[in-house]
Amino acid sequence: MGEFIIRNKGFKELIISRNYNSLTNYSQFKDDGYLNVDSNPFSDYCYQVTCGIWQNDKIKILSLPDKGRLFYLTNPNAGNPIYSNVFVGQMILVRDLTDNKVLKFNAEGDFNNQFSGNYLTEFRIERFCGLVSNNIIASVKLNMVDAQVSIGEKYDLYIPQTCSNTGNSPTNYDVYCTGEVSFSFAQVLNTNIGYVRMTTDGGSPEIGLSKQNSGALILMEIMDVNTDLTATLSASGISDPAAYPYGYPSQPVPAYYVFQFSLNGIDNWVYFSLQVDNA
């Protein structure tokens, strides 16, 4: 008689916190989750799949979020993005997930599934090597914080971009767009006295903030309100030349940062947000 081997499936929780703006109307192009970004637990989970032949690595969608909506990019790296709803049982190649835009979470969901306020929502995934389970199931918990509910003031910053479609981009894509704006919190908040710290790193793949003559912003690092910053835009993609400059990547995902301001840098921190988009 053969020996029974009972294998418990591994289980882990991946918790991702994100801010979103509930006043924004539903759009399939909106991306509140940024599920697959570097150093994010979701990405770490996906990248740990090793089949020997990495092209076979997959994750399977076991359940969908009860609030909000998951979308799937049906035409990665090919012209203007087209999104479809993710379905239970769907197998997604990890190599496709490595594109930030393939799987995304939209807090507003769609017309029949719109949520606002601060909430937690969850979906489950399982790792596969081809058709063979890797025996680890993950619960992806999204802690969605409504910027409009939580934050006192919302500011906007726009980056003028220039694009070329000469096929001479840093990647092998056809179009490369770049842009830069320098500013300080003093200009944004209209005060020269006080301190600021970043509470949510909201940089998107295409748009992000750095300190001038220094590196990227660091979570909870206290900065003088007069600190000079640089917002940069850098995006590449394939676009139908006929559609240029209107096709991807001329509509990059905005960065949505959440900061706190304090007069003395010690207490009485007040939230404000800064959305950075292309002009």
């Binding site: 190599r95 490595t98 594109d99 930030n100 748009i207 992000g208 750095s210 912003l217």
Partner: peptide, 18 residues
């Protein structure tokens, strides 16, 4: 891993399977 590169500035990510 891109983490050590953050001291240069914001790291923009992209995908290019070519």
């Amino acid at each position: 891993n891109i983490n050590p590169l953050k001291e240069f500035g914001y790291v923009h990510t992209s995908f290019d399977n070519s």
